[in-house]
């Protein structure tokens, strides 16, 4: 940001000609229009193509409503768990030195490099009827995959790194002197955490939670594998979009999709705002 202003103010020595600038901007904007903006506009155009009445009808239809509730439920369970995990991991990694630290960081990042489908597969291998624990689970009448617990587990897996990878670099960069100062002043562990550490990382924390939540509500591949696709029971919103789409009920599919698109836009707005508060140095690659 800063350097662009400098570039604008500096002489022609290191600037491209006006023609080249224009061509580059036009090509870039056209590329983004084709791949980013038009799909986004299309979601809303298609959603409203059968009129506002049909749009809202698709949203308040019971299966859509159940999908929305399940999506929220999954996020409400998985995001706080990954938040606690992220805080614990960042505290251990950033405030202490121990052997194997960089291996641990790599392992925390692992879910990002695993295909979402594989994230679903592993829980089927573990809890499916022919999986390791399958016979025991069915003997005790416990359903995990093709039921809500499986969806939660798969979501936890794919969103696990978000908070941790945002907090670790932030807390490493802040060092340990604030905590040491609080300690010499007599503060205990919880007081140090809540009164000194947490206020220092709050924007980064919110940033991680925001991205974690967006992914938790929007996850498709992993959830699709473990869901079982029972309408009104184990369908999250993205899965509901798929079902409607495959039934050629395009207007309804895009209507539900538009809700998810609004969630995405809201996420981007909040993300931009949090970045202006200094968050977002850790997790621009995921």
């Amino acid at each position: 940001m800063k350097s662009s202003l400098i570039a604008a103010n500096r002489g022609a020595l290191i600037a491209e000609s006006a023609l080249i600038r224009t061509v580059i901007v036009l090509v870039g904007v056209a590329f983004l229009a084709l791949f980013l903006f038009m799909p986004l506009v299309l979601v809303f155009a298609q959603a409203l193509s059968s009129g506002l009445g049909a749009y809202f009808a698709a949203l308040i239809e019971p299966d859509a409503w159940a999908a929305l509730k399940l999506t929220l439920l999954v996020a409400v369970i998985s995001v706080p768990l990954n938040l606690i995990f992220g805080l614990a991991a960042a505290w251990a990694i950033a405030k202490f030195s121990f052997p194997g630290k960089s291996l641990l960081i790599t392992l925390i990042d692992l879910p990002f490099s695993v295909s979402p489908v594989i994230a679903g597969l592993i829980y089927v291998l573990l809890f499916g009827s022919r999986g390791w624990l399958g016979p025991w689970l069915s003997a005790h009448n416990i359903e995990i995959v093709f039921a809500i617990p499986g969806i939660v587990l798969a979501t936890i897996f794919v969103t696990l790194p978000f908070v941790a990878r945002e907090l670790i670099p932030l807390m490493e960069q802040q060092g340990t002197t604030d905590e040491e100062a609080a300690r010499t002043l007599g503060a205990g562990g919880l007081k140090i955490f809540f009164r000194v550490t947490l206020p220092n990382v709050k924007w980064g924390l919110l940033y991680g939670v925001l991205l974690c939540n967006a992914r938790a509500m929007g996850e498709f591949g992993a959830v699709s594998v473990v869901s079982g696709h029972i309408r009104g029971v184990t369908n999250t919103m993205p899965l509901h979009v798929e079902i409607l789409y495959n039934e050629y009920n395009f207007a309804a599919a895009f209507a539900v999709a538009s809700l998810l698109a609004i969630l995405a836009l809201l996420t981007l707005v909040l993300k931009t705002w949090l970045e202006s508060q200094g968050a977002g140095n850790g997790s621009n690659k995921h």
Binding site: T177, D178, E180, A181, A182, R195, V196, P199, N200
Partner: peptide, 8 residues
């Protein structure tokens, strides 16, 4: 502390 470590 050297850089004071004031709570910002």
């Amino acid at each position: 502390f050297q850089h004071y470590a004031l709570f910002r």
